[in-house]
Design a protein around this nucleic acid. Structure first.
Lengths: 338, 338
DNA sequence: ATGAAAGCGCTAACAG
DNA sequence: CTGTTAGCGCTTTCAT
């Protein structure tokens, strides 16, 4: 490995001079600058940023901890973060909590051990409103941006998230504008804050339109296409005469739509279906799905910008970004009944 | 920040003693061990792995450079890598080349500057058969595992990839076994090694079956669903009387199938369609798509294992993993004509 | 079983 | 414009 001192020896100058040249500080003669630069280049010198960091007290390292980097809910966020981090001249440490609390703690402690200057965290859900690790993170002075909804134990950090309730209510309003009055909702797991917000948006839109939430129209579905199909089967069995179905996410919506189409229902002529999330499949679906597009990449960029501000010592407040409705073929004017 | 010396002071011992305790070396009395441990815990000590690395010459850092972490072709690989790396006690630096050569060089140099001990690389395609960066990487003694096909300028590294030609030929054989004799192929960009291998597999299977590749049945499509639709339109216009269509990937296959269904063709009764890649949508598609599943996660695990061996100084050879055919509803027995 | 000295590669602070 | 000294937090080596 080529070190500064190796270059210094060959160039007949001190280590300091070489250091200064390579950092391009002023107060160095053009002659030595050129000579040293050429030598460094030729010898294949690559600075040791960690050794430098030890001295300068900045590591140039940020870390991101997410449940799973392959999860479509986070890949684009991580991609955007990577982009920001790169642009800032930092490097990004990535690790996966796999949704497990203990594992998340390991990831966080490793980030602390590397003296990461900042941390992007998509937190694992905990029942306990307090968590020691987060105190440790705070004590270390690590800047933190929470990705997504902020749990109680992350109270002291800023976060960035899509305004899910708002977007979900827009989806409902879209159906209302199309004349639908009996809109079923296929709800997700009650523990998920995200699923909560989406249901809240649905309720809000109905209330605004002067309609009450009819419990007979709310079905506990889940998260998968099978869950959606199952819930829809129940919906049909209960004969609730809905003219539209709003689902907590695209998979559930597609599961529902699949079943309906297989049973001979026409979408959207007889029944409208809307999802949430705009997963890649939603556009390619049998009936291109009306859904809500999450600004994932934008969320990542926003998180990156917030981190930059935090690192500069500025005070930063949490942000909500609007999600947008994508109207496709699966929603249309209300018919008489289903 | 709590340092060893801080603990030493409070415990009334030397820094060395604390260091030894925390690394759990022998030759330390149980008493001091307990005392120091308690103190470290209580003071919230987190070792500085970079300072340690400076001394011990190992950084505990691996890096992965891919075009884009949000690309479904790599997310699961990165996820698996992260898993391996974590298990090995290393940390993972992630960066994106965005498919640009200069950017990839920046990413690689940064990994070198961090003294990453190993590098997972999904290389950007270059025309030039040589590339200085890779020489630099080699000179630094960084262990490298190439993800996917290995270009000329990565000749000296090992790689791990799916046996695409083999899998593609299995897809073709599947159609041949169903009685198809006129199988069209929607090819991808000729520059892509992946697209090449898949076409090669198709040809190989035909040859094995004693059939020649009929140029009239090979269409230049591309990579997207639109490309697939366009090529299929041409296919229909040219009236080539194919009974099956094999596509270079799932998107192209789905684009093709969409068009066919919209034109009133029944799949698979009148025409079979097979894709490649098993993207999440393929299963949820109008006609669940027969396709080839890439063992992405397995590729990642294999790459991780190879890296581990390289780090131990063992010699490692490149690996090919089998991809498997997933027969779904879009392929069936050959009919008379299309 | 414990400690003192030295140094990993680099740069801040102070000379000259 | 260039060099010297010291030290970042840790561990290796050698002593006791």
């Amino acid at each position: 490995m080529v070190r500064l001192i190796d270059i210094a020896g060959r160039a007949g100058v001190s280590v300091m001079t070489v250091s200064r040249v390579l950092r391009d500080t002023p107060d160095i003669s053009a002659a030595t600058k050129a000579r040293v630069r050429a030598l460094a280049q030729q010898m294949g010198y690559v600075p040791d940023v960690m050794a430098r960091g030890l001295r300068t007290r900045n590591t140039g390292l940020l870390a991101v901890v997410v449940p799973n980097v392959a999860d479509p809910a986070v890949t684009r966020i991580v991609s955007a973060l990577d982009e920001c981090v790169h642009a800032l001249g930092y490097d990004l440490l990535v690790s996966q909590s796999l949704g497990r609390v203990e594992r998340e703690e390991v990831c966080l402690r490793r980030a602390l051990a590397r003296r990461a200057e900042g941390l992007f965290l998509y937190p694992v859900y905990r029942l306990d409103p307090a968590a020691r690790v987060f105190d440790e993170v705070e004590r270390h002075g690590t800047k933190v941006v929470v990705l997504g909804p902020k749990p109680a134990y992350c109270e002291s950090f800023v976060n960035v998230q899509a305004d899910e309730a708002q977007a979900s209510s827009e989806a409902t309003s879209h159906l209302l504008e199309l004349g639908h009055r009996r809109i079923a909702f296929l709800a997700g797991p009650p523990t998920s804050p995200t699923a909560q917000s989406r249901f809240e948006g649905y309720s809000r839109a109905l209330r605004r339109a002067g309609l009450a939430v009819d419990d007979a129209l709310v079905f506990h579905a889940g998260e998968t296409a099978e869950d959606g199909a199952k819930a829809t089967e129940q919906l049909l069995a209960e004969n609730v005469s809905a003219t539209a179905i709003q689902a907590v996410n695209d998979l559930v919506a597609m599961g529902a739509a699949h079943l309906l189409l297989d049973r001979g229902f026409r979408i959207p002529e007889e029944l409208s279906v809307v999802g949430y999330g705009n997963i890649p499949c939603s556009e390619l679906f049998r009936v291109p799905l009306t859904t809500v597009r999450q600004p994932k990449y934008q969320l990542g960029l926003a998180a990156g910008a917030m981190m930059q501000a935090l690192l500069r010592g500025e005070s930063v407040s949490s942000r909500q970004l609007p999600a947008v409705l994508v109207a496709r073929a699966s929603s249309g004017p209300a018919s008489s009944r289903a």
